[in-house]
Structure formats: structure tokens, C-alpha cells
Design a protein around this nucleic acid. Structure first.
Length: 266
DNA sequence: ACCCAGGCATTGG
DNA sequence: CCAATGCATGGG
């Protein structure tokens, strides 16, 4: 069966640039890059693949699927606004629309695996997690996975994936946590997440930026961000987090996007 | 065989 | 309250 086009890319998207991260750190079976396309499974279970011409699916999307896709593809990012306000930053990666993760559990679990270690190592461990506990989807060219749901990991045996005992504990806590933040403001979300074992400020900052897509969110303590901002602003190798926070809050409502653009320079 | 990589919790001063 | 330490794997 042939897929049909169900949605265009948000205007101004440079698809190849926006999907760079799915080629750089290794194979990610929940965001699979194969044959020039990005493969995902939406929360409803709808399998999709994305290429330069838009989003393709093998079944009719519901309204919620289209809304999730818009969020996923970074439709909320104001590229024109960044270009107008900070042309020198926009020029680093024109058309870059960071891909977000719509599901809070996937976003948090993915971020936790990347704590401290290299993104390649995190990607390898996450691939093993996804292939053990996720639900596979196939067409004649590829197999990819829905990221495991909370219920798939509740009480699961996470040994043998390469995750530290602390990270295994955090994932199990996330699997049993209430991650429905409807009606909760950002401070309340932060407070609730920080109560969970193994969730610190860095993880919450990335959650705000990459899951909720808050325009002004960024992670000043992130090693890569500290390097990228330092090199761009002063030519020094790395800055402390507080100095990064000072400079980047100056980007105001474009900080999320601006920091993503700066990260491409690494 | 090292050393570093998109942190966090625990412990000791 | 700040500093030091262990965790875990993949790549250089």
C-alpha cells in the first residue's frame, strides 16, 4: 500500500538541516532516519514518514494527529522573528526548525538517557530500550518503533541496556509518574518534575525547550550550550552556566530557537 | 589504557 | 552552603 501526503512541512523549513541530529549520533529506531526520510509513530499509533515534500501516512490522520505533527515539526517556532531580531544567529542555519518530541514520557526518558554521557552512547542505549519495549511498525523498506509507553516500562526489567542504576531508577519512576500537565503553569511543572529522582534542572530545561517548545526556554547548564554560546559570543572555549543564562535571556522570546542555532556550530 | 561526553544524588567539610 | 565522588558506555 502506498502512503498519501497528509501535511506539508511548516513554511520555511530546511528539511535536511532540521533532521541533522537523526543522522549524527547513531541509529534511533523511534526517530528513524532511513533513505532520506524521518520515520515516526504518533501517539495515536499512526505511522508516518517525513521528507522534503511533507508528511506521508498509510492511514487517514485524525485532527489530533495533525496537531501533534505541527508541534513535532516545530511549526510554533518563529523563524522570521529570529531572522529579524538576530540576523547573525539566523544566518548560522537558515531554515532550521528544531524537531520536538510531543510526548512528555518520551521526551523525559530520552533526555534522562543523555545525562552526562555522550549523545552517541545515549543513542545506543536508547535504541536497545526502544527495540526491547517499543511497538514495531514496518513497511517494505524499513522497521521503526513507537517509543515505549509508560505502561510498557512500569515495573520492567531494565538490566542489560547499559543504563546506570540511577538512570534505571529514574525511568521506572517516570513510568509511574503523572505526566499530565494540563492546566499547570511552567513553574508548577518544574516543581513537580524536580521531585522525581534523577530529574534535575538540566533535564527540566530541555523538557521545556524540546517537549513543550517554550519560545524562551533553554538549558544554560548544558555542556554543548556552554561551549556554543561562549565561542559565538566571546571566542572563548566555554562559559559557566550563569554567564550563559545572562546572555541567552537577552534573546527573549527567541532564546529556544537561538540556542538551537548556536548548537549547530559545534 | 586512558579521557571526555548535552548530569544528578550523595557525602563530607 | 560549596567541593568531591561515583555512575555507565561509546569514541577518540
Amino acid at each position: 500500500m502506498q502512503p498519501t501526503l497528509i501535511a506539508p512541512l511548516p513554511p520555511g523549513t530546511d528539511f535536511v538541516r532540521s533532521t541533522f541530529r537523526y543522522r549524527r549520533y547513531g541509529r534511533d529506531p523511534a526517530s528513524l532516519w532511513h533513505d532520506g526520510r524521518l520515520h515516526r509513530v504518533l501517539r495515536s499509533g499512526l505511522a508516518v514518514r517525513v521528507d522534503e515534500s511533507g508528511v506521508w501516512a498509510w492511514a487517514e490522520p485524525a485532527a489530533a494527529d495533525l496537531a501533534e505533527l505541527a508541534h513535532l515539526l516545530g511549526a510554533g517556532f518563529d523563524l522570521d522573528g529570529l531572522r529579524a531580531a538576530h540576523p547573525e544567529v539566523y544566518a548560522l542555519a537558515p531554515g532550521y526548525r528544531p524537531i520536538l518530541l510531543a510526548d512528555p514520557f518520551e521526551a523525559l526518558a530520552t533526555t534522562v538517557t543523555a545525562q552526562q554521557i555522550s549523545l552517541r552512547a545515549a543513542c545506543a542505549m536508547r535504541a536497545r530500550l526502544v527495540e526491547r519495549f517499543g511497538r514495531p511498525v514496518s513497511n517494505d523498506a524499513a522497521t521503526w518503533y513507537a517509543f515505549p509507553a509508560q505502561t510498557d516500562l512500569a515495573g520492567a526489567d531494565l538490566d542489560g541496556l547499559g543504563l546506570s542504576a540511577a538512570k534505571r531508577r529514574t525511568l521506572l519512576a517516570l513510568a509511574g509518574a503523572d505526566l499530565d500537565f494540563a492546566g499547570v503553569d511552567d513553574l508548577g511543572i518544574r516543581e513537580r518534575l524536580l521531585e522525581l529522582p534523577g530529574i534535575g534542572p538540566w533535564t527540566v530545561d530541555w523538557f521545556m525547550a524540546r517537549c513543550l517548545g517554550r519560545p524562551d526556554a533553554f538549558a544554560p547548564g548544558d555542556l554543548g550550550v556552554r561551549k556554543a554560546v561562549a565561542r559565538f559570543a566571546g571566542g572563548e572555549p566555554i562559559w559557566p552556566a550563569d554567564r550563559v543564562a545572562e546572555v541567552c535571556s537577552g534573546f527573549g522570546p527567541h532564546a529556544n530557537l537561538a540556542v538551537h542555532y548556536l548548537l549547530t556550530t559545534l
